[in-house]
Design a protein around this nucleic acid. Structure first.
Lengths: 138, 138
DNA sequence: TTATAATCTGGAATCATTCCGAATTGTAAA
DNA sequence: TTTACAATTCGGAATGATTCCAGATTATAA
C-alpha cells in the first residue's frame, strides 16, 4: 500500500515529506484498525517528533480529496480513516469501536436508482452496527 | 406519525410537554427533509417561544434512545433526524444536502454475516452520496 | 544552488453537542 | 382539586474534534 500511495501522490503533484511518509506508514499498519486522527498523530509522532496535529488533518484531507483513502465520519468520537477504497460494508462494534471490513457483491444498482429516483450516485457508505465476536462473549 | 409517536412516548413513561409536541410536529412535517437540530429548534420555537436548544437536543436524544426516530450522524455540519425507521437507503445530495429515502429489498443477510464474520448486526446505516435531479441540472 | 510554491507548525477560532445546577411543570395519587 | 416529586426545561459554560491563520520551513524542478 505504501509505495503505490506515494507513487500516486507524486503523480498528482503532492510533495513527499517525512511527515506524510510517517502518516502513510501508520495508515498502512494493519495492526491498527481504521485509526482516527489522534491515533495517527500519536503513532506518526514517534517517527517525526515535530509533527503537529494540524498537519495530520491537512494530509488526511488531501488524501481524501484525491480519493486515495476514505474517511468515515462520525459525530460521537472522531472520524476514522481507511485505506480500503473498494466498496464494502463496515461492521462497526458498538462495544469496542472496532471496525471490520465485510466484502460483498453489490446488489443495489446505481442505474436503477438513477431511473427510479433520478439521483446520480458517486460513492457509498454502508455500515452495519452491532457486536463483534469478542464483545458478544462478555 | 404524531399521534402514534405521542402514544408510544406515554407508554414508555415520557412526559408530554408543549416543547416535545412542537418538536414532534416539526419532525412530522414532510415538507422539511430530514431536519437538523438547529432547523428543528427554529421551527419549533415558532410554536413554543421559550424553547431552548438544549431541550431540542435532550428530546431528540430521548426519542433516539427509545428507537422512535433515527439519528444520522455527520461530522461536517449537524446531525439529521428522520422519522422513517424502516430499513432504507438514504440518498444524500452533496450539493444541496437534501436527503431522499430510497426503499429497497434488503439483500445482505445478517445471518450470513454472523456466519462469516461472527458479527451480530443490530442496525444499519446505508447511504449513497451523489447529486439529486435538481442539482444535476446545474 | 536557487527560487518558489507547497507544506508545516502551533495557537486561536469554530461549531455542534453535552453538561450543569437551578427553576419549572406534567402526572399520578391522595 | 390539591399535593408531591421526579422529569423536564433553561441558558450559559464546557467540551472536543476539526479548521483557520500567518509566519517559518522545505521539497522539488530548473
Amino acid at each position: 500500500m505504501k509505495p503505490s500511495l506515494i507513487k500516486k501522490m507524486k503523480e498528482r503533484g503532492l510533495k513527499i515529506t517525512p511527515q506524510r511518509i510517517a502518516i502513510i506508514e501508520v495508515l498502512a499498519d494493519e495492526t491498527l484498525f481504521h485509526p482516527g486522527a489522534k491515533l495517527i498523530y500519536l503513532e506518526a509522532r514517534k517517527r517525526v517528533k515535530s509533527l503537529s496535529l494540524s498537519t495530520v488533518y491537512a494530509t488526511l484531507n488531501e488524501l481524501c480529496r484525491l480519493n486515495l483513502i476514505k474517511m468515515l465520519e462520525f459525530d460521537k468520537g472522531e472520524n476514522r480513516y481507511e485505506g480500503n477504497i473498494n466498496p464494502h460494508v463496515n461492521l462497526i462494534c458498538k462495544s469496542c469501536n472496532r471496525i471490520l471490513d465485510y466484502n460483498f457483491a453489490v446488489s443495489i444498482d446505481p442505474k436503477e436508482i438513477l431511473k427510479k429516483s433520478r439521483f446520480w450516485v458517486t460513492d457509498t457508505r454502508l455500515e452495519y452496527y452491532g457486536y463483534c465476536q469478542e464483545c458478544r462473549k462478555k
